[in-house]
Amino acid sequence: MRIRVFVAPLVLAAAALLAAPRPAAAETVPGPQTSYKAVELVEVKGGRSMRATVYRDGLRERREMQTQGQTVTIITRPADQELFMLMPGMNAAMKMNYERAMRDLDSGDLQGFDAEPVGEETVNGLATTKYRIAGDNGHGTTFDGYAWVTDDGIRVKLAGTVSFSDGSSSPIRITLTEVARGDQPNHLFTLPEGTRVMDLSKMPDAMQGGPMGGMIRQ
């Protein structure tokens, strides 16, 4: 069986190039404290965008999206240091190098990072605190912009500019809609029984579609 190795979807690359230095008098952006389901839209330069259905249960995350004409699901389990790219239509999954992936992805929810609160706003029907964030993630990627986060850690909106060590940059905008808080079934964060798994975790970046941040740089 031939399995095409997908370039990591745009939503993965864009979700969290956000780690910032800790400015004076800053406060910590709330990390995820509730389970929920939402629709996420990621938009970057050139009019490129990707829509995904996101399920969160603590730090566990499932993203379902359409890319290159196929359904792709990303399952992230930080407690197990595991990230899988699941292709349900092929009954197959690829296990990615977790540390390498999170170097590019980060958490998407700004957990543990400091930022300057600048006001309170309602975004898509949710009360949020607007935070000013500007800094380097320690891997040559910087973010300059704002994040709108609920008190229980749901990052409802993100808007700013991502810049990379190679000199490329892109505006980025991430918004959540149809947010529904509530427990998510455990099976969403596990691979279906009988799934064939290709372990790419020990292969170089080039065998995993290149750095996940590359989608923004195109």
Rank of each mutant, 00 (worst) to 15 (best):
residue 66 Q to A: 08
residue 120 E to C: 00
residue 130 K to T: 07
residue 169 S to Y: 06
residue 171 P to R: 05
residue 143 F to L: 10
residue 101 A to R: 12
residue 49 S to P: 00
residue 79 A to V: 10
residue 210 G to K: 12
residue 188 L to H: 07
residue 163 S to K: 14
residue 205 D to N: 13
residue 167 G to W: 07
residue 81 Q to A: 07
residue 119 G to H: 09
residue 204 P to Q: 03
residue 30 P to N: 04
residue 202 K to V: 00
residue 115 A to Y: 05
residue 99 E to C: 00
residue 145 G to I: 03
residue 150 T to D: 07
residue 36 Y to F: 15
residue 215 M to T: 11
residue 45 K to D: 13
residue 18 L to P: 07
residue 211 P to D: 12
residue 145 G to P: 04
residue 117 P to M: 05
residue 162 V to W: 03
residue 176 L to K: 11
residue 64 E to K: 09
residue 131 Y to A: 05
residue 99 E to M: 02
residue 178 E to P: 04
residue 150 T to V: 13
residue 199 D to A: 02
residue 40 E to V: 09
residue 40 E to K: 10
residue 94 M to T: 11
residue 55 Y to Q: 03
residue 66 Q to N: 12
residue 107 S to I: 13
residue 110 L to M: 15
residue 141 T to N: 10
residue 39 V to L: 12
residue 97 N to K: 09
residue 140 G to D: 11
residue 40 E to H: 04
residue 96 M to E: 12
residue 195 T to H: 00
residue 181 R to M: 03
residue 32 P to L: 04
residue 212 M to I: 14
residue 171 P to V: 00
residue 75 I to F: 03
residue 175 T to D: 10
residue 206 A to L: 11
residue 6 F to D: 14
residue 38 A to L: 05
residue 209 G to T: 11
residue 13 A to V: 04
residue 147 A to E: 06
residue 104 D to L: 13
residue 10 L to A: 07
residue 193 E to R: 01
residue 108 G to F: 12
residue 158 L to I: 10
residue 130 K to E: 05
residue 20 A to D: 06
residue 32 P to N: 05
residue 106 D to W: 15
residue 183 D to I: 02
residue 74 I to Y: 09
residue 65 M to A: 12
residue 83 L to W: 08
residue 204 P to I: 01
residue 142 T to I: 09
residue 158 L to K: 05
residue 118 V to Y: 01
residue 146 Y to H: 10
residue 97 N to E: 06
residue 163 S to A: 14
residue 162 V to L: 06
residue 167 G to T: 13
residue 62 R to D: 03
residue 191 L to Q: 00
residue 50 M to W: 03
